[in-house]
Amino acid sequence: MMIRMPKGIWPWLILSLWFSSGLKSNESPLSPWSTDPLLRELTAEIVFYLSFDGGNMKPEMALGLSDYRLTGQPKFVPGLKELALTAGGGKSGYAVYSSKLNFPIATQGTMIMWVCPVAWTHYNGPNTIFAMTTNFSFYLERQGPGHNEKGELTRQEAVLFLVNTPTTGNNCINFGTNNWPSGKWRMLAAVWKWPEMALSVDAGTFSVRSVKKPPLAQEFGDLLVGALGGEETLIDEVYVFKKALTKEELQKIYQAFSREFNQKGDN
């Protein structure tokens, strides 16, 4: 069972400890971003961050414009820290942000997000988009399963990191989600440093592939986060880094935050 901080307490903890740099690290549960030297250095690489904790789609961090266009009415529910976004289920919404500076998909970067199945049938279900570009050239999504009337599997369920541009061709990395129970949060990390792209779940083994040629910036649209349709999923703590994080860095993040979120790793 996940334990959440009462509203308003978590930020205070971070700040009080942030300022208490003379304290020994074992005196309090310090915020990993501020106390771990490696993670602290990584904070300079963050270009976009959605916490949803304000009960809206406003980015908490945006190197570029923070404006966004809304479709539907995004639904927020208790999440990892405070609030999480409901993706899919037909009763939520999504927001579109300027990719410029916020989403360096044409060069190198990492998108990390935590997702949690809510109502996955594991039998028949549509896709749930977690993030994509508006011209469909980038997706981080969960492909819903499909079975025909005879009960035969017609579409595998998986989380997908997909890049499909005229230059790169169609490139997809997937990770099966058949055994993902409801209520269990997972950390997805899509990493790109062209021509390589990688997908990692819970900082586990990278699935890596390489595109035939690095994409061009103009082949990507704006960044969309969230979904109206698809099987209901919670999304929380969406980070975009302008650096292709290493496996070690991802593991550090995962270990630090799965502890903070009272999660157990499931590599």
Partner: peptide, 17 residues
Amino acid sequence: LTRAVPDGDRDIVSVCY
């Protein structure tokens, strides 16, 4: 390096970064 975005009276922890 200015990424944290104001959101009304809400405290934005990310300003620390």
